[in-house]
Design a protein around this nucleic acid. Structure first.
Lengths: 229, 229
DNA sequence: ATGCATAATTTCGTATACGATTTTGTATTG
DNA sequence: CAATACAAAATCGTATACGAAATTATGCAT
C-alpha cells in the first residue's frame, strides 16, 4: 500500500480512517491493544491525533478505552452480539420500510442480481464473499433511505459486528440458504408494493432469524428477551 | 459553581462533560462557535483535551466540526428535527415494547404519578417543567429496558433534540393535553399485558403525533416520507 | 463608494516534552 | 515457594510551541 495522499485530509482524520479500516478488515482483531505511540509510528503521525481518532472510535463502539491504561479493539461477546443484532433488526426493519416506496424496478433488478451471486456462493462455500455480497444487497435496498439518521444507525450496527459479521453463516450451515430466500421474498414484497408494516416485519424477521440461528447454537446465552417480530 | 473535584477524572473527561452539559442546558445555544483556546481557558485546561472532547461530541451529533475552521454547537434545523423525531419514534417504540414485560405494578404507579403531575402542569402552563416530567415519565418506562444499545439510541435522540425539546409543546397548544392522555393509554396497555406489537405501535404513535403536530405548524417542510405507524 | 489584492490576525493541527499513573520485573522476607 | 515491597519500564495525559490554514482587516485602484 502506497503512502498515498499526503495532503487534503488532516492526520487525525487519516488516523481515524486507517484504524477503523484495520479494525473492520480484521488486521486489528478484538482485544488488540491500541498503543498510541506504536500506532502513531505505524501511521507516521504523533500520538495526539491517534488519541483523538481512538476516542472517536470509542464513541462509535469500535474500541473500548480505560483511563491511564489505554484502548483495545472492542470485542463482541455473545451478549453484545445479541444486543447489536436485536437493534439491527429494528433499525434495518425501519430502514427497509422507509426505503421501499422509493425503490424502483431497476434497483430491485440490481438487488436480485446480487442475490443470485450470493446463491452461487453457496455452492462453493465462500463465507467471506457471501458476506460482502450480503452487505451489497442491503446497501441497494437502503441507498434511497429518506432518513440519514436511521441509515447511520444501520451502519454503526454493521461496524460493531465487525469481523464477526460472517460467523453465523460460517457456523450455522443452513442459515445462508434461508437468508437468500428471505432476500427474494423481501424483493417481491417491495415489487408488489406491500404495505410498510408487512415489509418492516419481513426485514426484521430476516435479521432476527439470523440471531435465532446463532442462539440455537449457543444455548448457554441468557435469551434475555423475546424478540420483536 | 465550585471548582469541584480536582482529581479522579481526566481533564479531557471533565471537558467532555462540561461542554455537553453546557449544550444541553442551553448555555451554549445552537450555532455557538466552540473555540478551542477560549473554552480551554474557561475550563482551566489547554486546547488539546478540549479538542478531543469536542470531537467525541461530534460523534454523538451534538456539535458539527469543519476542518481548519472549528466546531459549532449543532443546530437543529427543521429537517434534522424531522429525522430525529422519526428515528426516536422507532427506537422509543422498540424500547417501550421490549421494556413492557419487565415493568411491574409499582413502576406503572410511579409513572402514573409523574403523569398526574404533568396534568397539573397543563393548568399553569409550565413548558419547562412539563418537559422535564415528560422525560421522567419515559425514563420510568425505559429503566428496565433489556437492551442497553437501544436505550443508548433513545438518549442520543433526546440529546440531539436538546433545547428544542419543549418547543412543540410550547408552540402547539393542544398537543400537551393529547400527550398526557397517550401516556395514560400506554400505561393501561402495559398493565393489561397487551402484546408487544400493540404497545410498540402506541409508543411510536405517541412520538410521531408530536412530529405531526409540529409539521402541521410548519407546512413548508418537505414532508419527505410517510411515517411508520 | 465598490471591488480586489494583500497584510494582519485568528484559530486550527500536531509534534515535542515531561509529569503522572499503571504495569511489569526483581529482590527481599517469612 | 509465596507474598510483599520496591524499583524500572511502559504508557498515558496534557501543557507548550509553532507551522499551516482560514478569516478578517486594510489599502489601493477604479
Amino acid at each position: 500500500m502506497s503512502e498515498a495522499a499526503p495532503a487534503s485530509t488532516s492526520k487525525s482524520e487519516r488516523a481515524y480512517s486507517a484504524i477503523k479500516a484495520h479494525i473492520l478488515e480484521g488486521d486489528y482483531s478484538p482485544g488488540y491493544r491500541l498503543v498510541l505511540a506504536k500506532i502513531g509510528e505505524e501511521l507516521g503521525v504523533s500520538a495526539v491525533p491517534v488519541r483523538e481518532a481512538i476516542r472517536r472510535l470509542e464513541a462509535e463502539g469500535l474500541v473500548t478505552f480505560e483511563r491511564n491504561v489505554g484502548a483495545t479493539v472492542a470485542s463482541i461477546d455473545p451478549v453484545q452480539y445479541l444486543y447489536t443484532m436485536q437493534t439491527l433488526s429494528i433499525v434495518e426493519g425501519a430502514a427497509t420500510a422507509l426505503s421501499a416506496p422509493l425503490i424502483g424496478a431497476a434497483d430491485v433488478a440490481r438487488a436480485r442480481e446480487v442475490n443470485e451471486r450470493m446463491r452461487e456462493c453457496l455452492k462453493h462455500f465462500d463465507p467471506v464473499r457471501f458476506t460482502r455480497l450480503n452487505q451489497d444487497f442491503h446497501s441497494v435496498l437502503f441507498e434511497h433511505c429518506p432518513n440519514p439518521h436511521i441509515l447511520d444507525l444501520v451502519h454503526r450496527g454493521w461496524n460493531r459486528l465487525g469481523s464477526l459479521r460472517s460467523s453465523t453463516f460460517r457456523f450455522v450451515p443452513g442459515r445462508a440458504h434461508e437468508s437468500v430466500e428471505e432476500h427474494e421474498a423481501i424483493l417481491r414484497l417491495i415489487e408488489t408494493g406491500a404495505d410498510a408494516d408487512t415489509i418492516e416485519k419481513a426485514a426484521r424477521r430476516h435479521r432476527s432469524a439470523t440471531l435465532d440461528a446463532y442462539l440455537a447454537q449457543a444455548p448457554s446465552l441468557p435469551q434475555p428477551t423475546p424478540a420483536l417480530h
